[in-house]
Design a protein around this nucleic acid. Structure first.
Lengths: 156, 156
DNA sequence: ATTAATTCCTACTAATAAACTAGGATTTAC
DNA sequence: GTAAATCCTAGTTTATTAGTAGGAATTAAT
């Protein structure tokens, strides 16, 4: 039996977003250890380690090694778009190979009505994820929780 | 090494759309055998059989059994939305479980800023795929091919 | 200096899902 | 009655996802 629904995002993207939102909620407070985030979210810290590594290499977070070390955002939450996180962790979101820029054009691209459809879908997704920043999510978070006191728990 | 990009649609959805576009291009001309479509698109006919079955059960195509039989659209191409095809073959497209209606709400849905994000992504995708009909794709097809003579080949 | 807490790195493994294939039963035009 | 088709269930193979495991390097605190 096949899976019934298609998750657009795998755990890489979903956990990555949760992790980054946690860091955004703590922006300006210094580095926090990954294990803390993993515990709060009930996720495997060794798995999160794997996910935060490319985020660091792409300049979205910075790390402090050693005891009392940890991670923090490398720039202001308003400068980090959800699309950045997703593209680093999941790659480009596209309905089919032929829409990806890196790919050579498929031989009949000019005749291809399905390609046009895929381009519309891709554009629509990119519009959303590139217009929402971590700051927007932090604002949503406080608005939804109807409080100005920073909380720690955040669910999927 | 992990896959680099995320295909939103699997072969189920992509082949399904190609198949349905072929049927739309031949709408009104009677049933055509699946093997013909598979040959034109260089796809496995036994695999396509599996995909067309749910499309038939959901009333998008109708079949004629026996020799000279085949498949045809069960309604006008303008009445069949790309979203219908995708939902039948791939299930709901959602970034995470918690956005799916069938799912019980996750315990902290009201506090959940990531859920809000997922809802925005989902809405944006649904807006696109539910606004494009097979007729629109047929029109695009002829416009892209700059001809009024119906052609057979159509690529991914 | 030693210890404990942390990041960093590579490689492996288990579970799940995707992408088909196989085989045959049933239907129907010719 | 035969060939061409749909219909149905159950496999199989391959790829991807979602982790684990183990340890090296770094650093604050004692």
């Amino acid at each position: 039996m096949r899976k019934v629904d298609s998750m657009i995002l795998s755990t890489r993207g979903r956990y990555g977003i949760k992790m980054m939102l946690e860091l955004a909620l703590n922006y300006g407070k210094g580095a926090i250890p990954l294990k803390d985030i993993a515990n709060r979210q009930s996720l495997s810290d060794t798995y999160l380690e794997q996910l935060i590594s490319p985020l660091r290499k792409n300049g979205l977070v910075k790390s402090t090694r050693g005891a009392q070390g940890g991670y923090e955002l490398a720039k202001n939450p308003s400068e980090i778009m959800v699309g950045d996180i997703i593209r680093i962790l999941e790659g480009s979101l596209a309905p089919a190979q032929c829409v990806l820029e890196e790919e050579p054009e498929c031989s009949k691209a000019e005749y291809c009505a399905t390609r046009l459809l895929y381009e519309k879908i891709t554009e629509s997704i990119n519009n959303v994820i590139d217009s929402i920043s971590l700051k927007d999510m932090v604002d949503d978070y406080y608005r939804l929780n109807n409080t100005n006191v920073k909380r720690r728990s955040e669910n999927e």
